[in-house]
């Protein structure tokens, strides 16, 4: 088989980006029981927002706080042990927002059973937890790729929001089995190993820029394996 650098996909990878607006729900919690109460009722978009938006808006932090619940419980209520438990919920292990919601509820519920006094901790005025929902407006970007070389180049250039859309949105919110990059690599090039490696990268453990560097590096390594000669322009 000729070098992957010049193998063209049948279908190009089209990079999209997602503009995210925050929508207020007007729901707020000042205590852990109130937080639990609303957690059982809010739409999935709220769960997604509070487990992912922090990551996007603070994506430069390493290591960053994983979700709004962990941050609020730790920094506002001062319940560090519970904050730690919430921060350690492995989002990668949940295939749906409902499953993630159940895990958050179960973590808080069990903690309250073990530490009933925590029910009485409350946030002072102005520091309540406000439930917010994400609205996603998905638009195509000018970037697309027919080859691995083009794919690596585009991946290097798109905004972190585009990266976020293809990695985070595709899996948990849109219910795809893995991220969009892994699916395309597998389907278009049969790059099973590369697809597996790409799917295995834990996006929650990196800043978005580090994630970008990791993904680009995986593709470049594949290109080097396919074509050990100094890389040439694919066009």
């Amino acid at each position: 088989m000729s070098a992957t650098t010049v193998v063209k996909a049948q279908t190009p990878f089209k990079f999209y980006t997602s503009f995210i607006l925050e929508e207020a729900t007007g729901l707020r919690a000042a205590t852990l029981p109130q937080l639990l109460h609303w957690l059982r009722q809010v739409p999935d978009g709220c769960l997604y927002h509070h487990t992912h938006y922090f990551l996007l808006s603070h994506h430069y932090l390493t290591p960053g706080p994983t979700n709004d619940f962990a941050y609020w419980v730790t920094e506002v209520l001062g319940e560090e042990p519970l904050g730690e438990l919430l921060a350690s919920i492995d989002t990668m292990q949940h295939a749906s927002l409902q499953s993630l919601r159940d895990a958050v509820i179960e973590t808080i519920d069990s903690y309250l059973k073990q530490h009933p006094i925590a029910r009485f901790k409350f946030a002072s005025e102005g520091e309540e937890f406000h439930f917010v929902k994400s609205i996603h407006v998905v638009v195509p970007t000018p970037w697309s790729a027919w080859t691995l070389e083009e794919f690596a180049d585009s991946l290097q250039r798109v905004t972190v929001y585009s990266l976020y859309y293809h990695v985070f949105d595709s899996r948990l919110r849109l219910g795809r089995p893995t991220n969009d990059f892994a699916i395309w690599l597998e389907q278009q090039f049969g790059q099973t190993e590369l697809a597996k490696e790409t799917a295995a990268v834990d996006p929650y453990a990196h800043t978005l820029e580090t994630l970008r560097a990791l993904l680009v590096s995986l593709v470049r390594q594949q290109l080097d394996r396919d074509d050990p000669e100094p890389r040439r322009d694919a066009h």
């Binding site: 607006l21 925050e22 929508e23 007007g26 406000h130 917010v132």
Partner: peptide, 18 residues
């Protein structure tokens, strides 16, 4: 459109935070 979630009232309409 409001500046912060704490500034919002509950209304039956799309209320965006910017």
């Amino acid at each position: 459109v409001y500046s912060a979630p704490a500034f919002v009232q509950r209304l039956a309409m799309r209320q965006v935070l910017i």
